[in-house]
């Protein structure tokens, strides 16, 4: 009886274990299936690099949205990477114990805050800051709903991702290696710069890529502060319309306009593929780095 139970449980568990793989494949397949309608009529590259977006006229050019995503992601990474890495170095190499213990839960919480809350905060603080302080400072007009606002909010959202992975990478660099550099008369900073960062380089790249892919797919927070104007932004003070926002904003209309739903599903597929490639790349690099560390 006990063994029968064991057998049944085993079979059931085996079936469930197939779920994650099946889910990935069915997402890919499902989105591809839905995108077919539009891909049958238009070329993929024409869709990706076309800049006209007029669903009612049957014109679907993704370029403004792709550029919007790229701009916002780029600004976010420019801000987030140095700040996150410096924080991670500080926490792993310099900070006294009580600061580490205080900071850890704060970073966990930062990771746990829902993206709409980031969005609300962005509207309350970052948008006016960009529109009323930064833009006049640079002598330009901006409503505040801009690439820069999206980038700033997004940067804060990816801090925890980059910091977490970077901390793991730094802790995998052995204590002895640091001591070796120190005992040659190097300062702590020199040890970090020449030894820890270099030894962890692959892992750091992976951390950045993971942050990047998180930023790339983030939807709500960005959507709320970025302005959502379907034009290729010319400066960071211009509004943008990133790809995820496009999908989220238009589910209401998409059923009534022909091909619209197919276009949006294609957008989701593109998003999925890009994030997939980023993630796989990062995992691969991390795995290789781990193997080398052993």
């Amino acid at each position: 009886m006990r063994h029968l139970k064991d057998l049944i449980a085993r079979r059931a568990m085996f079936l469930l274990t197939a779920v994650p793989g099946f889910l990935v494949l069915s997402m890919l397949f499902g989105l591809l299936q839905k995108s077919r309608a539009i891909l049958a009529l238009k070329s993929f590259s024409g869709l990706l690099f076309g800049s006209g977006w007029h669903p009612l006229k049957g014109e679907f050019g993704f370029l403004p949205f792709l550029m919007g995503t790229l701009w916002v992601t780029l600004v976010a990474m420019v801000l987030a990477v140095p700040i996150s890495l410096l924080t991670a170095v500080y926490l792993s190499e310099y900070a006294p114990k009580f600061i580490r213990e205080f900071t850890k839960p704060v970073i966990d919480l930062l990771a746990g805050i829902p993206s709409v809350v980031y969005g609300v905060w962005g509207v309350l603080m970052i948008v006016p800051f960009v529109g009323k302080v930064l833009a006049p400072l640079f002598g330009v007009y901006s409503s505040g709903y801009s690439v820069l606002s999206g980038g700033i909010v997004l940067a804060i959202m990816v801090f925890p991702t980059i910091i977490h992975v970077a901390l793991e990478v730094f802790s995998s660099v052995s204590h002895e290696l640091r001591e070796t550099s120190l005992s040659l008369g190097a300062t702590k900073w020199e040890t970090v710069k020449y030894v820890v960062l270099r030894k962890g380089l692959q892992g750091i790249i992976a951390a950045v890529v993971l942050g990047l892919s998180r930023a790339f797919g983030e939807t709500m927070a960005v959507l709320m502060v970025v302005g959502n104007v379907a034009k290729i932004p010319k400066s960071v003070f211009d509004p943008a319309y990133p790809l995820p926002a496009l999908i989220a904003n238009n589910y209401g209309e998409m059923m009534s306009v022909p091909l619209y739903d197919s276009a949006l599903m294609l957008a989701a597929l593109v998003l999925l593929l890009v994030v997939l490639v980023f993630n796989l790349g990062a995992r691969f690099v991390l795995m290789k780095a781990e193997r080398r560390a052993e």
């Binding site: 989701a268 998003l271 994030v275």
Partner: peptide, 14 residues
């Protein structure tokens, strides 16, 4: 790992 990295908007679309 792959699922973990997929943005929630894609889950929504799926």
């Amino acid at each position: 790992d792959v699922l973990w990295g997929i943005p929630s908007i894609v889950y929504g679309a799926f």
